[in-house]
Simulated assay, not measured.
Amino acid sequence: MAITSLVAGLATGLFSAHHFNRVAGNGLLANMLAMPLVTFVVMPSGLVAMLTMPFGLDAWPLQLMGLGLRGVIAVARYVDAFGGDLLIGQIPLHATVAAGAGLIVLVMLRSRLRLAGTALIAAGAVLALPPLAPRAPDILVSEDGRLIGLNTPDGLASNAARPSEFTFRQWQTALRGPQHLPPVPHSTALIATATEPETQAAHEMQAKILDPLMAAAADQPSRFQCASRGVCAAIYKQATIIAIDRAELIGPACDRADLVIVATPVYMSACRSGATLVTSRSLRRSGALAIRILNVDPPGSPPGIGASAATRVASQAVRGSGGIGARGRAPRKRPVFDIEAALEGVVRPWTVQRYYDWRTQSYDLP
């Protein structure tokens, strides 16, 4: 029974760790300690209680069953006192496949060849560790574009003082539990601007929102500077990020940033300045994003060069195009973003609604 529990715990624990980025180390021990009580006390007592129930003799079997369940709960509490789950972060797919194949070889074969399974398990463990493990993302974007995280050495900096607990906890688990770095607030009086996007006065007024935030971001990099949750700026690894929820600020944001994230469903799909544009409309198709900052483009090169083939296809919907500076300015060097999308254009019955266009009443499938 102990060996069966051990094998079952390892088999399910491997895939649980891959999907949920944590290992319930105490769960296996609790199962092994509670197995005798369940097998020899709880289940037999329940069977006897069911058989004697028509004769009104089920009281003592149920009492014995209750004592066994109390013992199981006591074991769970005892093991839980040792500590909670172990955060292990993201495990690459090839590491999970190698370790899973090793576990199958170790359990299923009967000759000495089964010892080769330990080598495969060890190879999976090595593939999950730096420098063989994939590099962690630098920027995380939620699927609605309202929550953005910067994976800095000091912690996970976000554009929300109180981010969505579920989403942010998943990010922290995947990144091995970094602390939360809230945004630095600025005067909300900067938000009152004109609504005419094409007038010179309106453009100057809009600049009064973004320019102070950009200056503050330069003085304090790797932290979001926010006039509100919907108007934020940050500089991280030579990349300028602006997050907005107002359509009239898209133009000024494209002129000033390398990455513009708009939490509104606008039809605009690219920045003429060459900045990478992400909108809630593009996120509806791509899902949440994990972005890695690779290097800086030479002047005039199109965004997206240097991304891997797997992620370049997934990120075409959210990248900008062109390399010419806005309003006739000379092109500037821009970082290369390697963008990995959660959905990557894969259509499933539970995701097909993301491609529905209510205007044409049809599906715009990739």
Rank of each mutant, 00 (worst) to 15 (best):
I241E: 04
M205Y: 05
I241R: 01
D219R: 14
A11Y: 02
F82P: 04
W358A: 13
V141I: 14
G328F: 07
A243H: 04
A128G: 14
P185F: 13
T118E: 11
G56N: 02
T39G: 15
R246M: 06
P252Y: 08
R110T: 07
Q220R: 06
L277V: 02
G328V: 01
I242K: 11
S222T: 11
L33S: 12
A174E: 08
A34V: 12
A24V: 04
L175I: 01
P252D: 07
P349D: 05
P183N: 03
H94V: 11
R229K: 01
R281N: 13
E204N: 12
P302N: 14
S308W: 01
A59R: 03
V42Y: 00
V23G: 05
L86P: 04
M65Y: 08
A341W: 05
A11K: 08
A123E: 09
W60Q: 04
T118Y: 05
G177R: 09
A123R: 13
I191W: 04
A239P: 02
S16K: 09
R284N: 15
A136M: 15
V7A: 14
A24H: 15
R359E: 15
A257K: 04
I73S: 10
V107W: 07
I293E: 11
T52L: 04
D258V: 10
G274P: 00
A341D: 06
L277W: 02
A239G: 08
V313M: 12
A189N: 11
A76K: 14
A207D: 13
T118K: 02
Y267Q: 12
F20D: 15
V126M: 11
L62M: 11
S269H: 10
C232D: 11
L120T: 04
T264A: 08
A247I: 15
G84C: 00
A81S: 11
F82H: 15
A123H: 12
G345D: 00
D85K: 15
G84N: 13
S308V: 00
K208I: 02
L37C: 12
M65A: 09
P302S: 09
P44F: 06
G304M: 06
D138Y: 06
F20M: 01
S269G: 06
V107L: 02
I241C: 06
R359P: 08
G325F: 10
P153Q: 07
P61A: 12
I91S: 02
A275F: 09
D297A: 06
G251F: 07
A116S: 14
V262E: 03
L343N: 14
A30Y: 09
R327F: 10
I121H: 00
R114W: 08
P252G: 12
R329D: 10
G177W: 03
